[in-house]
Every structure is written in C-alpha cells, then in structure tokens.
C-alpha cells in the first residue's frame, strides 16, 4: 500500500488517548498526550516467541497478530502500537469494526488493564456494570436503564477496570452500542435508520453520544446476568470466592488469551471485588422480561 501523507485523528477511549490513521467516528475526539498510535503498515508474518498459536492469530506477552481474511491483518505490540495491513479492496468499515472490538482489547490486555465483558452506566458518581455472555442483553439493559431512569452510559461491550494506588477505577469506553434487531424493537429505536456494523452482519450500530459519560469512575455494583428457564427473575448476592470465580469468566476474550495476563488480572480483579458488591440475576430466556429486569436492577441500586 502506498504511504500517503497520512492524516491522523486523535481520539480518547478506555481512558487512553489514541492517534489514528484510520477514522474512527465511534470514538470521542481528544487533545491529550498520545499514548497509543494506530497506523497502516506491514504486519510481521509471525511472532518469534509466541505463547499461543491460534486460528489466524498468535500471542506473546507483548505482541499479538490476527488475520481477518480476506480483509486485513493487525499487529498490536507493547500496549502502545497497532499496525494495520489491509488487503486489496478491503472495506475501511470492516477494518474499523475489528479494530474497535477484538483488536483494541488486546492492546488493553497488554497495558495491564482488566477489560471485562460488560456494559455500564453511571449512578451518581459511580459505575454500575452489567457482565453477561453474548446474547443475554448487556447492551439492552444499559440502554433501557438510561432511557427509563436517565443514568448516563459508560460502556456497551467492554468495560475497562484498573487499579490506581490499590483502588479500583472504571474507565468509560466509547459512545456506541451494537444491537440486534430484537433489542432495537424492545428499546423503541425502530424509527432510527441505523447502519449494520458490517455488510452482511445483521447487528446494528447505535451512536449514543448524547447519553454518554466520558471519564473515570469509582465502581459501585456489578450485576452478572444469566439466562435461565425460571419464570421469575431471581436476584442473589454473590459472596466470597464465588465472586472471583464468576467474574473471572467475564474477562474479555479470556478464551483467546488463556492465562497470559493472569497475574495482572488477579490483582485488579481482587481489588475490584473487594470494593464492590456483586449480584447474580437469572432471567428467563425470552424478550418479555426487559421491563421487569430494569425494575429489579433499579430497586437494588436505590437500596444501595
């Protein structure tokens, strides 16, 4: 690829200032000191000292290569650099979609942060997180609580946790949600003409800039939401080591990175769990429970 006089854009996401040669309209603009650069260039064929050799990806402690055939290869290193090597005719939107989800999360891991598979809202000046597996409704519940009770949104899919002076903090991610059609119906967003995240991928991108809070927050509560087959919504506080075991399942891309960052994750996760309360919510595996779920969560938040 020809090296054009690259235009660079500067953004902030996950508490990091990023300079990027690729336009990322989903991120918020920033003018702070740059910590990470995203540029076009050549991706190494393979890593010399790989710890994991996966399907179209390789990982070492400080390096990560992934190939999204036939669109682009990505190289992430030292927690401060992402290089993109696009294939001929690659769609920039496809590249950006992979960049701001799976690829950037590896950079967060390299930076010694704890990315959780969770959405989040701001309650007073604290963070309330919703951790769940794909398809359970993380995005939907956060948006519904925003719509009903006005809580600002802080994350849709990935919430970054860190520890500063042994105290856990939560960084907001970026103001954009990915939603299935049924969530759009439930949230009454049908009148908005939303784009798909990618061509032929039937998930919509919803910009929620007006409802977004950008910044650092102290964590308050974590709700772990699971689908069950019981009629009623059940909510129960999780205590003790269980808390750790449950939340460890929700580290983002845990299956991909295996235990490479286990020490960092242990330290941050235990710091986090010492200062928040966790609740497990079992909801019925169908769409009609959103209202009841929001009310249950709001009641718990109010009592806190």
């Amino acid at each position: 690829m020809d090296k054009k006089m690259a235009t660079t854009y500067t953004y902030s996401a996950f508490g990091i200032n990023i300079s990027s040669e690729i336009k990322i309209p989903e991120f918020l603009p920033s003018s702070g000191d740059i910590q990470v650069t995203v540029s076009y260039g050549e991706v190494p064929k393979k890593l010399d000292e790989k710890i994991i050799n996966g399907f179209r990806f390789q990982i070492s402690a400080d390096e990560f290569i992934i190939r999204y055939k036939p669109w682009a290869a990505f190289y992430v290193c030292n927690g401060n650099k992402i290089i993109i090597q696009p294939e001929k005719d690659a769609d920039e939107n496809d590249i950006k979609t992979f960049l701001i989800s799976s690829v950037i999360v590896m950079l967060l891991h390299q930076r010694g942060l704890l990315p959780l598979h969770a959405s989040g809202i701001k309650v007073d000046n604290k963070a309330v997180l919703f951790a769940a597996n794909a398809g359970v409704g993380k995005s939907t519940i956060a948006l519904d609580l925003n719509r009903k009770y006005g809580y600002p949104l802080i994350a849709d899919d990935v919430t970054v946790v860190s520890a500063i002076n042994n105290l856990p903090v939560v960084y907001s991610s970026f103001p954009s949600a990915k939603l299935w059609q049924d969530s759009i119906e439930m949230l009454g967003l049908l009148n908005k003409d939303l784009p798909f995240i990618r061509k032929d991928v039937f998930k919509y991108r919803f910009d929620n800039r007006p409802a977004f809070f950008s910044g650092i927050l102290e964590p308050l509560l974590i709700f772990v939401i699971e689908n069950g087959d019981k009629e009623n919504i059940e909510i129960q506080e999780i205590k003790g080591v269980d808390k750790f075991n449950v939340l460890r399942q929700h580290i983002f891309r845990a299956k991909m990175i295996n235990e490479i960052y286990a020490v960092e994750h242990f330290k941050i996760l235990t710091q986090l769990l010492k200062s928040v309360s966790c609740f497990k919510i079992l909801k019925h595996n169908n769409s009609n429970t959103l209202n009841e779920l929001s009310v249950t969560i709001q009641d718990t938040i109010k009592q806190w």
């Binding site: 205590k239 003790g240 080591v241 269980d242 808390k243 750790f244 075991n245 235990e259 286990a262 020490v263 242990f266 330290k267 235990t270 710091q271 769990l273 010492k274």
Partner: peptide
C-alpha cells in the same frame, strides 16, 4: 503467592503454575 480476602474466604493464585485455590 497472590492472595486476596473475599468476604470471609480467601482466593489465591500460584503465579508460576497459574493455578487458583480457595480457602
């Protein structure tokens, strides 16, 4: 060992083996 109190229990991790333990 990395160890941390979780309410009245303790979770631990052995950094070399990567194994987790609960007390």
């Amino acid at each position: 060992l990395l160890a941390s109190r979780m309410d009245d229990e303790i979770v631990m991790m052995h950094p070399e083996s990567g194994k987790y333990f609960a007390l």
